[in-house]
Computed example of a mutant assay.
Amino acid sequence: MAKRSQTPSFTLELPLRVELWQEHILEKRFEAARFMYNALLHKGMKRLRRMWADPRYELAKQVSGPEGKK
């Protein structure tokens, strides 16, 4: 369960008022950022699965001792 903050917090959402050409630019940039995020996430997950499958990883966990475990 997530730890609750001691201080109350609020979120205010306001509409972004931009010209049509600015909206198109923002859409393209957000789409490029989404594409890059997904590509990097996929690459990272692929590397993580490859690390977990490597027998050297199990050996490294054993060598690190109890302080390496959480």
Rank of each mutant, 00 (worst) to 15 (best):
A2Q: 07
Q62N: 04
L20W: 05
L20K: 14
E27D: 10
L26G: 03
K70W: 11
K70C: 02
L59C: 02
A60R: 08
L48T: 11
P8N: 05
E13P: 04
M45E: 14
P66A: 06
A53K: 02
R49V: 05
L26N: 06
R49S: 07
G65R: 00
L16W: 03
R17I: 15
M36C: 02
M45P: 01
L14M: 13
V18P: 05
R4T: 12
A39C: 12
E13N: 08
E23W: 06
A39G: 09
A33F: 05
A39H: 13
A60N: 03
G68P: 07
P8Y: 01
A60H: 04
P66S: 04
P8A: 03
T11P: 00
R47C: 08
R50L: 13
T7V: 10
P15D: 00
Y57Q: 01
P55V: 02
E13A: 00
R47N: 09
E58R: 10
M45V: 11
Q22E: 15
F10G: 03
S5Q: 08
S5P: 01
E58Q: 07
R29H: 05
K46R: 08
K70M: 06
R47L: 14
V18F: 05
K69H: 09
R50F: 06
E58W: 06
G68Q: 00
E27V: 15
S5I: 01
W21A: 15
G65H: 02
W52C: 03
S64E: 10
L59T: 09
W21F: 09
A33P: 00
Y57R: 00
T7S: 12
E19T: 15
R17D: 11
D54M: 02
K43E: 15
R17W: 08
W21M: 10
P8Q: 06
Y37S: 09
A33W: 08
H42V: 14
L48G: 02
Y57F: 14
F10M: 10
E27W: 06
F10A: 10
M51P: 03
P66C: 01
E31L: 15
A32P: 04
